[in-house]
Design a protein around this nucleic acid. Structure first.
Length: 904
RNA sequence: GGUCGCUUAGCUCAGCUGGUCCAGAGCGCUCGCUUCACACGCGAGAGGUCAUAGGUUCGAAUCCUAUAGCGACCACCA
């Protein structure tokens, strides 16, 4: 037979055509009317501007493994794809492009800018979906969604209006996180704290003229003063009070009196509030209601006014003294400190490390700012979502994330959902402009006039937080709010969500809330949290560091299967994975090698299983040998273990178990043992039994490995002789169930004994340098049971251990090497005639002599007091270790020599 | 500051409810192999005080306590 296939698997040749074929055959498409039990995963929609990176590679491979497995189990499997419009992120990208043209979004105006973003999205958006095809993701492309699709926008609007009508959406003046660069509000989750080496300035506020303040320290001019501490001195310009603890004796006398706020000429009162901690600093705290959330609350309790001294860009506005107007906030900080110092009002400055929030999109320092925004009241939504977890309906993998979820849910705060952006879902709220009307309406359909007075309406200029559409994703993608939509009925609620722990609060928790609120059911039962892909130095992979790995480059060099195997076998749930971007071979070579191993098993099958239909196991049943029963037993157990691992979301374990079965059991042992039978050495019946078993084992191995390595397994599987009832494609082939009737403990023990004997003989061969081609005699002393097992396996022993002749009985004063197995079986390999004893003895004596010389030399060196005293400690230790190692080697050599010299 | 996690061969990691793990894999390393599927391979081997100190137990890498180092998340201490 001519060489049928090249000895190296070429993923480039097979992967994309296979994917196209699967897609054309419609295997990815879910049928809402099949009536089969569904299994649903909705993709965490990547940003529409995203390009594939390893994080996506990991996350989507995990989802694909799960969905492929469930599809093979016969479930109506739906994995729904789509992208997120990603408000700030996308707007920023387009603004940067405009900036290169020297323009801003304001130059274009709102309408033209939004159109420009759409253009950008249409041209370059969604390429990540194409890239997901390349790594084998079996997504149902007929159901691709985008968060700004008309249907999804309808859902967003419906939800907003419903919540508004229920009083769960409200507008209010609050301190929010403001990004002075993006010029928008951010949610608490979007303001990311990072450690910052800052300072704590202690400032003196003198009491107002005529206020008596016994017990306070005094300035040189005799006026008493209070000391307050701040990390943001520039905000003192907006102070409207100072708070002390009501129980603080030191300040009891001046509560209700006034202070003179330096630099401003304003007088501000001292108020009593629990917020002031007597233990911290001086116990007095400045209150800046417009620039700090806590101060805002204090002000509400104590009736202090709020004064805003900053523009949206975070420069000082006209509310502040003239000297500071127009300054940037950090410039103002320096100026304020300098002014205090000049006035002798700067008490002291401390170094102070604290967490400063930064914009998660542009990393600008966030400025807390008083402004009017829309909020969702979260407590009523959180309660049932928390209960779902407590009742065990919602599960996290790994479990510990449940507690994190609980903690967040218990301490949930209202969600700021308005954004001062242009790209996104416009807030469906209109204000009546008619004098004295003041009507505000939230509407499902654009209104034409004020329902109350008929006056002209103006729509709220803001858009909704991106996550306000994302939290509806599990059902907005399925036709909601149409409760009769077929997809919604068939595929909601779904089953599993796979995502990064970072967005547990942004997204996961909110989806659970939305699912319960609007559909009365949680959107998924299992939440699998992925780890982070890092480089070999433990850094997150990022564009700016240039330490990323492009999955498509990996695909090109190693194949998508190699990439998939690497990420699945390389990390468990919420466990970070370290990949060296400078050494892709190290990271992905093993996966490629494994794929190649599978390929070659396919070649082997082609050469040995013949062209006809597969020999069935039933047909061969009466001629199965122990090795056949062994591999079938192992196969059944692999089916069970891989399935159990998948059920417990232990994908890594499933992949490694499949690897071990295929390579360590099937390829290393069964394939080798069965070769003579396939050649026909043991007759036609034995040959057919071997063919049937091998076909079965390869078939099973391809099935359990398919979810992890879909391409190579399909490529191999379709080459195997076809069983009578074979499916059209491995992707829809039935997931195998354990076969108790195959499990055979006696066969397993027999083959284990055989493996141990072969291993021992190989060790002896290797140690004595016996020529590979040379065959050795073997004598075994074993229990009757072991003896019977081995006797039945003479052929395998002859081939795998290159044993000339197997006999049973003890050694009898002969020259040779012996070994004792764990089972108690003793074996003896006579060496006379196999190796040139005289030469081997001479060689060993030579080596012994050389070692003795080295040992002597080292001993002498260590006996030298001057050396031990003067040489560095590590050098002396090195010599000692060397000596120990020489002695060990000598011992082994002496043993070998003794064996060669035998009893004589 | 609070909560949680991690610390096992040179490297990256498995070891699930304590007992065939007198510790396993992959990579790397050493030695030997063009053995008729595969050198992206085959065979053999070296290499580990399971972070440290106590404790529970007949028995602990596995449970408990403390300590150290690393990491994550949360947090308004100005």
């Amino acid at each position: 037979m001519a060489e049928p296939l090249p000895p190296q698997y070429s993923p480039q040749e097979h992967e994309d055509p296979l994917y196209r074929w699967w897609e054309e055959q419609g295997y990815f498409r879910a049928d809402a009317s099949s009536g089969r039990e569904p299994y649903v995963i909705v993709i965490p929609p990547p940003n529409v501007t995203a390009v594939l990176h390893m994080g996506h590679g990991l996350n989507n491979t995990i989802q694909d493994v799960i969905i492929r497995w469930r599809r093979m189990q016969g479930r109506e499997a739906l994995w729904l794809p789509g992208t997120d419009h990603a408000g700030i992120a996308t707007q920023n990208v387009v603004e940067r492009i405009l900036a290169k043209e020297g323009r801003t979004r304001y130059d274009l105006g709102r309408e033209a800018f939004v159109e420009r973003v759409w253009e950008f999205v249409r041209e370059t958006g969604g390429q990540i979906l194409q890239q997901l095809r390349a790594i084998g993701a079996s997504l149902d492309w007929s159901r691709t969604r985008f968060t700004l699709d008309p249907e999804l926008s309808t859902a967003v609007r419906e939800v907003f209006v419903r919540l508004y009508e229920k009083g769960l959406v409200y507008r209010g003046h609050r301190i929010i996180n403001w990004c002075p660069r993006c010029l928008t509000a951010l949610s608490d989750e979007e303001a990311e704290p990072s450690e910052h080496q800052g300072r704590l300035w202690h400032l003196r506020y003198p009491v107002a003229e005529g206020v008596d303040a016994p017990g306070l320290p005094r300035l040189p001019d005799g006026r008493p003063y209070l000391v307050i501490a701040t990390t943001r001195p520039e905000t003192m310009l907006a102070d409207t009070g100072v708070a002390v603890n009501p129980g603080d004796e030191r300040y009891a006398a001046i509560v209700g009196r006034e202070l003179e706020l330096p630099l401003t000429g304003r007088r501000i009162p001292v108020v009593a509030d629990e917020y002031a901690d007597p233990e911290f600093g001086s116990g007095a705290v400045k209150i800046t209601p417009a620039h700090d959330p806590n101060d805002f609350e204090v002000a509400q309790r104590t009736g202090l006014p709020a004064l805003n001294v900053m523009t949206p860009e975070a420069t000082i506005n006209d509310e502040a003294p003239e000297a500071f107007r127009g300054m940037d906030r950090f410039e103002a900080r320096r100026a304020v400190v300098a002014a205090f110092e000049e006035l002798g009002l700067l008490e002291r400055v401390e170094e102070h490390t604290h967490a400063v929030p930064h914009c998660y999109r542009c990393d600008t320092v966030v400025e807390p700012r008083l402004s009017e925004q829309w909020f969702v009241r979260m407590k009523p939504l959180a309660q049932p979502a928390l209960q779902a977890w407590r009742d065990g309906e919602l599960r996290f993998h790994p479990e510990r994330f449940g507690k994190i979820y609980e903690h967040w849910m218990e301490n949930i705060r209202d969600w700021c959902i308005s954004r001062q952006l242009w790209w996104g879902h416009r807030i469906p709220v209109w204000y009546c402009r008619a004098e004295g009307c003041g009507e505000t309406i939230a509407a499902r359909e654009d209104p034409t006039g004020c329902p109350k007075c008929g006056g002209a309406l103006e729509q709220d200029p803001d858009v909704l937080d991106t996550w306000f559409s994302s939290w509806l994703w599990p059902f907005s993608t399925m036709g909601w709010p149409d409760e009769d939509a077929p997809d919604l009925k068939a595929f909601y609620p779904g089953h599993t969500l796979v995502t990064a722990p970072e967005i547990l609060f942004f997204w996961v928790a909110r989806m659970v809330m939305a699912g319960l609120e609007f559909r009365g059911a949680i959107p998924f039962r299992d939440v699998y949290l992925t780890g982070t892909v890092r480089d070999h130095l433990g850094r997150k992979m990022s564009k700016s560091l240039g330490n990323g790995i492009d999955p498509l480059v990996v695909k090109e060099r190693f194949g998508a299967d190699a990439m998939r195997y690497t990420v699945i076998s390389g990390s468990g749930a919420a466990t970070d994975q370290y990949l060296n971007y400078e050494n892709l071979e190290e990271a992905f070579g093993p996966g490629r090698n494994f794929a190649n191993k599978l390929w070659n098993a396919g070649r082997f099958a082609l050469m040995n299983l013949g062209d006809g239909p597969r020999v069935s196991l039933d047909e061969a049943r009466d001629h199965l040998e122990p090795m056949d029963r062994w591999i079938l037993s192992r196969l059944s157990k692999a089916f069970r273990e891989v399935t159990e691992a998948l059920e417990r979301f232990r994908l890594q374990e499933a992949a490694l178990r499949g690897y071990e079965f295929f390579w360590g059991e099937l390829a290393d042992w069964y394939l080798e043992m069965v070769k003579p039978r396939l050649r026909g050495d043991a007759g036609e019946e034995s040959r057919r039994a071997a063919q049937a078993t091998l076909a079965q084992a390869l078939d099973g191995a391809m099935r359990i490995l398919h979810p992890v390595m879909p391409f190579i397994t399909e490529a191999v599987w379709r080459k195997l002789p076809r069983a009578a009832d074979a499916e059209a494609s491995l992707i829809v082939a039935r997931w195998p169930e354990p076969r108790p009737e195959w499990e055979d403990e006696a066969a397993e023990r027999a083959i284990e004994e055989l493996q141990a004997v072969i291993g021992a003989v190989r060790t002896i061969r290797s140690e004595y340098g016996i020529q590979p081609a040379a065959r050795v005699p073997l004598r075994v002393a074993a229990s009757d049971e072991a003896r019977a097992m081995l006797d039945a396996s003479r052929r395998a022993l002859r081939d795998l251990a290159r044993v000339e002749e197997l006999s049973f009985g003890a050694a009898n004063g002969e020259v040779g090497a012996s070994a004792v197995l764990r089972s108690g079986t003793e074996l003896f390999v006579p060496l006379a005639g196999v190796i040139d004893l005289e030469r081997e003895r001479a060689r060993l004596r030579d080596e012994l002599g050389r070692l003795d010389g080295q040992i002597g030399g080292t001993e002498k060196k260590l006996a030298n007091e001057a050396f031990v005293a003067r040489a560095p400690e590590n050098v002396v230790n090195y010599e000692r270790e060397k000596l120990a190692s020489f002695r060990e080697q000598r011992g082994k050599l002496a043993e070998k020599l003794a064996a060669l010299e035998g009893a004589a």
